[in-house]
């Protein structure tokens, strides 16, 4: 038993975790005919939180259409907690390539323990220009862009590509155009 926990506590290689992520698609279809996608939860949350009638985009029966999706993302919070507390040691370091470590060091980002750089993802860094840009502006574009494009990495990148949608291929190319621009042009300026 301890051996199993020990094994599961290691990072799961991509050829194990990738197919397991992919299996979420048939699971949701068989559980209730739901199309796998995460970012629509943002729309449902806005529809639930905002006074009705601010925009047509948020005026629809969100409980019926989005209740399952809000339960799903609520489960993801629990899943993240379980993976971090039960299946990961607190000093675990994400084993990124040496080239990435070097590139990030050149930008002044230390490669330390944890899933994200603790020096950026802490409350006090919200008051710094770089921290505000990464967390607040980054979050804004994640929400704005995924709703404008009608999907994110899950809805377009996985479900859309798996069903051969041209729209999803274009969206994924857009994801990379935007991501490459930020990584290679914007981050060297602001970090």
């Amino acid at each position: 038993m301890n051996d199993i926990v020990q094994l599961l506590s290691q990072p799961w290689p991509w050829y194990v975790s990738g197919p397991l992520i992919g299996l979420t698609v048939p699971a949701l279809l068989l559980f209730g005919g739901k199309r796998f996608g995460v970012s629509s939860s943002l729309r449902h949350a806005c529809a639930a939180l905002l006074p009705a009638g601010r925009s047509d985009y948020f005026r629809y029966p969100w409980k019926q259409l989005g209740g399952w999706n809000l339960m799903f993302v609520g489960g993801m919070v629990v899943g993240g907690w379980m993976a971090a507390t039960l299946l990961t040691s607190s000093d675990a370091v994400v084993q990124i390539s040496a080239a990435t470590v070097t590139d990030l060091a050149a930008l002044g980002v230390t490669h330390g323990p944890g899933l994200v750089p603790e020096e950026i993802f802490r409350w006090s860094s919200l008051a710094t220009p770089a921290g505000f840009l990464i967390i607040v502006v980054g979050g804004f574009f994640v929400g704005f862009g995924s709703r404008y494009a009608d999907g994110c990495t899950s809805g377009h990148g996985i479900t859309g590509l798996a069903t051969f949608q041209l729209s999803s291929l274009i969206a994924v190319l857009g994801f990379f155009a935007g991501g490459l621009l930020v990584t290679h042009v914007l981050l060297p300026i602001v970090l």
């Binding site: 967390i135 709703r147 991501g179 490459l180």
Partner: peptide, 12 residues
């Protein structure tokens, strides 16, 4: 929209 999302994905 995809490009805007990519900005956010790379930042956050």
């Amino acid at each position: 929209g995809g490009t805007a999302f990519g900005f956010g994905w790379a930042l956050l």
